[in-house]
């Protein structure tokens, strides 16, 4: 039983490492500090722009921040929030980000 549980945990990680090769996110695959993402979130709810404190309260992420992982992690949080907790109070989000200091890219929610 114990051996099975341990083996299952290790196997789960192997699966996630393989899965990470096909998706932009990097969960449970031991990719620490492999990507530096600098991002800025502009969030509008009901036509009003949220301030830094409101953005952090909504997404539990800084409005202007750095993520030491894939930018997908920030997108997942924003999208996940808007598809669940934020359904009745939807936001329009624009995330400007740079990966490893390269050219700025833009991600928007809702998707256009």
């Amino acid at each position: 039983m114990k051996t099975t549980a341990a083996a299952a945990l290790l196997l789960f990680q192997v699966v996630m490492m393989v899965y990470a090769r096909f998706v932009p996110s990097r969960y449970f695959c031991w990719a620490p500090f492999d990507i530096q993402t600098e991002y800025k979130l502009q969030v509008e709810v009901g036509g009003r722009a949220l301030n830094a404190k409101e953005v952090r309260t909504r997404y539990r992420r800084a409005q202007n921040g750095t993520d030491n992982r894939s930018p997908q992690h920030v997108m997942d949080i924003v999208q996940g929030y808007e598809e669940t907790y934020g359904r009745n109070n939807p936001a329009r989000v624009e995330m400007r980000y740079r990966v490893n200091g390269k050219q700025e890219q833009v991600w928007r929610w809702p998707r256009q």
């Binding site: 290790l10 990680q13 192997v14 090769r21 695959c29 492999d34 990507i35």
Partner: peptide
């Protein structure tokens, strides 16, 4: 496993290969 995951992820990342990261 941790080191293999970390090393292989970097190995397959173009920005790590080039030093940009």
């Amino acid at each position: 496993l941790v080191y293999f995951g970390a090393g292989s992820n970097k190995l397959l990342d173009a920005d790590w290969q080039s030093g940009v990261f």
